[in-house]
Simulated scan of single mutants.
Amino acid sequence: MTWAKDWVGSSPGTHIWLLVIGITSLVIAAASEGLGQFLVHRTSSNIHELNEHPLPSLLISGFWIERPESFLLYAVMFELLHANVERWTGTARWLLTVGGAHIAATLASQELVLLAIEGHRLPRSMTHVVDIGVSYGLAAAAGVLTYRLRPPWRYGYLAGVLVFFGIPLLTGATFTDFGHAIALAMGFAAWPLTPAAAEEPPPEDGTGPADRAAGPPPEQRPESPQER
């Protein structure tokens, strides 16, 4: 099917990422309960792993999901969000946006966990909490996709995104909900990286490019009074 090949070829990063998640999901599904728990903890970007293995834990945690049965749902979300954003902005800018959001949201959310532990609002066992998944990257892609839509669809989509991520944040938010909000905000902030930022707004004076290139019209000299 040519259309499927073209679609995958136009968003290679999305589908490579999805392929890796599919493989790791199969590993979790086939592993024993003990091995599965070891893997999700070992690949988490929690406080313990960030202290012990900061760079690997930040990167690897984005290639695992805790429940393999959710893979099909994530596949749909990848096609709707990541693939469209990558096709529109290009692989490099897409990767910079979602990768940066994943890292920033992970670090910020775990800092909140650390502060809560130090303030005795969370148990110290939360330093080993399972923190893996791809949702921060999806939240960032959802933010970027806002600029892909034209009004009035943009406003309806934006309202839906804000409600989806805002309600959990306002009703008993977890550290993951804060991470989603940070990633979404970074997606919104990535507007300069989108093709929409390169589109020149129409001039306010109503002149076209040719008129502006020609310069201002010559001044009209007042006619001298004619002799009678």
Score class of each variant (00 low, 15 high):
Met1Gln: 11
Asp6Pro: 01
Pro12Asn: 10
Trp17Val: 05
Trp17His: 15
Trp17Ala: 13
Leu19Ser: 15
Val20Thr: 13
Val27Phe: 09
Ala29Met: 07
Ala30Leu: 14
Leu35Ile: 12
Gln37Trp: 00
His41Gly: 00
His41Trp: 01
Arg42Gly: 12
Thr43Ser: 13
Ser45Ile: 04
Asn46Val: 05
Asn46Phe: 02
Asn46Trp: 03
His48Val: 02
Glu49Met: 11
Glu49Ala: 03
Asn51Gly: 15
Glu52Asp: 05
Glu52His: 11
His53Met: 07
Pro56Thr: 05
Leu59Asn: 04
Ile60Met: 07
Gly62Gln: 04
Glu66Ile: 10
Ser70Leu: 14
Tyr74Phe: 15
Ala75Cys: 09
Val76Tyr: 04
Val76Pro: 01
Glu79Met: 04
Leu80His: 00
Leu81Val: 13
Val85Phe: 03
Glu86Tyr: 10
Glu86His: 09
Gly90Ile: 12
Gly90Ser: 09
Gly90Cys: 11
Thr91Arg: 15
Ala92Phe: 14
Ala92Ile: 10
Leu95Gln: 06
Leu95Ala: 15
Ile103Cys: 01
Leu107Arg: 07
Leu107Pro: 07
Leu112Trp: 13
Leu112Gln: 06
Leu114Met: 12
Leu115Lys: 04
Ile117Gly: 07
Gly119Asn: 13
His120Thr: 01
His120Asp: 13
Arg121Ile: 00
Leu122Ile: 00
Arg124Ser: 13
Arg124Leu: 09
Met126Asn: 02
Val129Ser: 09
Val130Glu: 04
Asp131Ser: 11
Ser135Trp: 04
Ala139Ser: 14
Ala140Asn: 02
Ala141Ile: 01
Gly143Lys: 06
Val144Tyr: 11
Leu145Arg: 03
Thr146Ser: 11
Leu149Ala: 05
Leu149Thr: 00
Pro152Val: 12
Pro152Phe: 10
Trp153Asn: 07
Tyr157Cys: 08
Tyr157Asn: 06
Ala159Val: 14
Gly160Lys: 02
Val161Thr: 06
Ile167Asn: 02
Gly172Cys: 04
Thr174Ala: 07
Thr174Gly: 07
Phe175Thr: 04
Gly179Ala: 09
Ala181Glu: 01
Met186Asn: 03
Phe188Asp: 03
Ala189Trp: 11
Ala189Glu: 06
Thr194Ser: 15
Ala196Asn: 11
Ala197Glu: 11
Ala198Asn: 14
Glu200Thr: 15
Glu204Gln: 11
Gly208Phe: 13
Gly208Gln: 08
Ala210Leu: 15
Arg212Trp: 15
Ala213Tyr: 14
Gly215Asn: 13
Gly215Trp: 15
Pro216Val: 13
Pro217Ile: 08
Pro217Lys: 14
Glu219Lys: 09
Glu223His: 00
Ser224Gln: 07
Pro225Asp: 03
